[in-house]
């Protein structure tokens, strides 16, 4: 069983933005591995629709930083072929919402190629881009794809909540031999955090304990981890103390750490920015029930988006998403405080 220790802050005083951390991860890996290239819409001349790849065309040239036509299924499939042929493509989806047209390539080909070739043809490729709502982009452009895609065996899913993990997880993703879906958030790209200049990686399948407390286990991944931390701060003022677990990867999922925390707290609230039905939060709770049912002192609770298409109007979108208030309320409910 995993022993839980609080994740120490990065040993640096260097602060950079989330998008810079992503860029650093890609650039560092590209400097040391000539097989890596970045392909996607607007990634080269325009420096990225969200400026993640700013300056990379200048450094690496058009052979390795490649503007693709608006053809997600096309460049996803092309990347798969290149990966099978020994290159290490990073495929940027401007938004994971646009990956839906590439579903056959990324789910039916990338994730299954190894299996269908009897373990022979691996597909080391990273698909990355913005995931989740919150930018008033309307329902079609606001997908949280984690639950939709995590159902499929053969792929890995990383979802960082902060710049340090963004860099470390993306480096691990690029080096991984399997297809990795890397979910970023447009809402977090400007967030700053401590990120060492040098080399480090963050392993897959190891949750980070962001905050310690004995009363309730808060489990989340990606952007809502930050809402959990805000909620935990507020709850601490009322003497309610939470373990906040940042899963960092959804596949693999570090259930051991969740179980270890529940053995201490006896309570769990899972915060998931996607829809409630058959979501990652549901999966976490199912595994918790299988693994440590007897340790639970209250039924598990989910905080998710509402079960409707993402609203376009700002106040409605904010009300629809998980936020601090909803998390505080949920934790109070499971610890029995009104």
């Amino acid at each position: 069983m995993a022993s839980l220790t609080l994740e120490p802050p990065p040993a640096t005083d260097r602060k950079i933005a989330f998008r810079e951390a992503l860029r650093e991860a890609m650039s560092e890996e590209m400097r040391s591995d000539p097989r890596i290239f970045l392909m996607g819409e607007e990634v080269a001349q325009y420096n990225g629709a969200y400026k993640v790849s700013q300056g990379m065309l200048d450094e690496f040239g058009p052979k390795r930083i490649i503007d693709a036509p608006i053809s997600e299924n096309g460049f996803a499939g092309l990347g798969i072929g290149a990966a099978m042929y020994g290159l290490r493509p990073i495929i940027e989806f401007m938004s994971w919402s646009f990956s839906l047209v590439a579903a056959d390539q990324i789910l039916n080909n990338a994730a299954k190629m190894l299996y269908m070739s009897g373990g022979q043809w691996g597909c080391p490729i990273v698909f990355r881009g913005n995931d989740g709502a919150g930018g008033q982009l309307g329902s079609t452009h606001s997908w949280s794809v984690e639950a939709l895609y995590a159902n499929v065996p053969g792929l890995k899913i990383a979802i960082p909540s902060n710049p340090y993990d963004a860099k470390g997880l993306l480096k691990t993703a690029i080096r991984d031999e399997d297809p990795v879906f890397f979910l970023e958030s447009e809402r977090m790209l400007g967030d700053t955090g401590l990120v060492p200049a040098g080399e480090y990686t963050v392993p897959f399948g190891q949750a980070a304990l962001r905050r310690e407390g004995d009363d309730c286990t808060l489990v989340s991944f990606g952007r809502p981890v930050n809402f959990c931390l805000e909620a935990a701060d507020e709850l601490a003022n009322e003497d309610i103390h939470c373990d906040v677990l940042d899963m960092r990867t959804i596949r693999p999922l570090d259930v051991d750490s969740i179980v270890a925390s529940i053995q201490k707290t006896g309570r769990i609230v899972v915060v998931d920015q996607s829809w409630p039905f058959a979501g990652i939060a549901s999966e976490v709770i199912a595994q918790v029930c299988e693994r440590c049912f007897d340790y639970l002192d209250h039924q598990p609770v989910r905080v998710t988006s509402d079960d409707v298409p993402t609203p376009y109007a700002k106040p409605l979108e904010q009300a629809y998403l998980p936020h601090k208030g909803k998390i505080v309320e949920a934790v109070k409910r499971v610890v029995g405080v009104e």
Binding site: F37, G77, I80, G81, A82, M84, N109
Partner: peptide, 23 residues
């Protein structure tokens, strides 16, 4: 490459290989 049974998914992989060859 392994036989592709889904219809038409694999020409993209061939183009990916061709791209990698050029690369």
């Amino acid at each position: 490459l392994p036989i592709a049974i889904p219809i038409g998914t694999h020409p993209l992989h061939a183009v990916g290989i061709a791209y990698a060859k050029k690369y």
